[in-house]
Write a protein that binds this DNA or RNA. Structure first.
Lengths: 226, 226
DNA sequence: TTACACTAGATTGCATACAATGTCACGAGA
DNA sequence: TCTCGTGACATTGTATGCAATCTAGTGTAA
């Protein structure tokens, strides 16, 4: 959306469409299960359907879009079991990624994390909360010299984003309090240089969120609808 | 695999090309770093470049191909650090996947695993060894009712396949002996229903292989070549 | 009413053609 | 010799047009 609408050099249309559509899906402009029509996307981006189709293939591989031959494309939706699976995967991977990035976390960066955690506590709207939560986690990982793991974790965040949004809107203040406490515990552990503790808290944090999500099957697709 | 060479109905060209190219890369028909020309692939599959481009986008997302706009496509190659990263990721994910699939591992399936482990011990050629090793692991996971995790693990196997091939050709018999012993330990743990032990052995097994790979930097791309 | 065939319209899949870009060899000038 | 254009060629990027397929609606018969 808010693209700078750059000159868009020859050879970047498919990437631009993929980026734009990904952003739109994550922002909630499309709902899970919503149909995506190639022609509409093409005219939206002022191109033909060729780069649109390439972008859709890419987003399919990322798990954001579901393609059916000769039939169409839909924003992917998850069952509760699938969402739970993503969270269990995150439980195992994010601590590893944190380990990769920890050595690059300077005092300044940890202070920024602390500031994010505090801003999140005083945040009001759902979108602001989601944005700050994502930024808190991803900025922890930003220094990691990994080539694939960070991108992989971001994909896991992306595919579950709509459910995090729906869940955030109905979560009570008790859970929120623990949620914030865990963030502060991670900051403290990182400040103390206690990486093992930071890993454990991070894993618990994701696990607890998963267990709460699993109490809300109404947020998810029914298994039978496939 | 074993394509039935079906009539290739309208709407499946891109998928067929992606499958074929993936298989060719994994089989070693292309080397890491080798150039992929769209026109050549198109005529090989009897189509135009349009579905070829879609297939390349997909394989790029899978980490098998590297695309540069206006310039071309190459079979992706890994540095040692990147390969090591994939193995560390597998160390964390495969035990989880095994946990998912363990409850579907019947006595019959465990016997098949045992048979695979024995056939691997008496295997001679590199390709046979690679094939059996892959089949041993993936058949452990086959019963998992996961929607994403198994595909993810397969991607991790795929991106590192050429390096496993190169490594296999120069590994000594000592390491091979431990390698087989670990496989047998996993079979035994599964037979005993000791899932915790099976997870631990699996994690160690991957870890040990990683540490051995890291002793052979000559197998990998130089960092500077990017 | 229900099940089924059939048609019209919408949408996707892909081959062709041309435009944009990159590559590489060659030659001129320093 | 080295550096920097310069042009021809190879290759990639995408708009267009048409074929294949699916969907929804209608009508017919059981």
């Amino acid at each position: 959306m808010s693209d700078t609408d750059s000159p868009l050099k020859h050879g970047n249309t498919a990437v631009a469409i993929a980026d734009g559509l990904r952003h739109a899906i994550l922002h909630g402009d499309y709902q899970p299960g919503e149909r995506i029509v190639q022609d509409q996307l093409a005219s939206k981006y002022g191109g033909s359907r060729i780069p649109v189709r390439e972008a859709l293939r890419q987003l399919e591989s990322e798990g954001l879009v579901r393609l059916v031959a000769n039939t169409g494309a839909w924003v992917n939706s998850l069952t509760m079991a699938e969402c739970s699976e993503v969270y269990q995967t995150r439980e195992r991977l994010e601590p590893l990624l944190l380990r990769y990035s920890a050595e690059t976390l300077t005092v300044d960066k940890i202070t920024e994390l602390d500031s994010l955690a505090h801003r999140m506590e005083s945040s009001t709207g759902t979108e602001e909360f989601l944005e700050l939560d994502r930024e808190f986690h991803l900025s922890m990982y930003r220094g990691a010299s990994t080539s694939m793991l960070r991108e992989l974790v971001i994909r896991l965040w992306n595919t579950t984003q709509p459910y995090r949004r729906a869940y955030t809107q109905l979560v009570g203040s008790d859970h929120r309090r623990i949620f914030h406490a865990e963030h502060h515990m991670m900051v403290t552990a990182l400040r103390d240089g206690d990486l093992d503790l930071a890993e454990q808290v991070l894993s618990m944090h994701i696990r607890r969120t998963r267990l709460h999500l699993e109490r809300h099957p109404e947020l998810f697709d029914d298994d039978s609808s496939r």
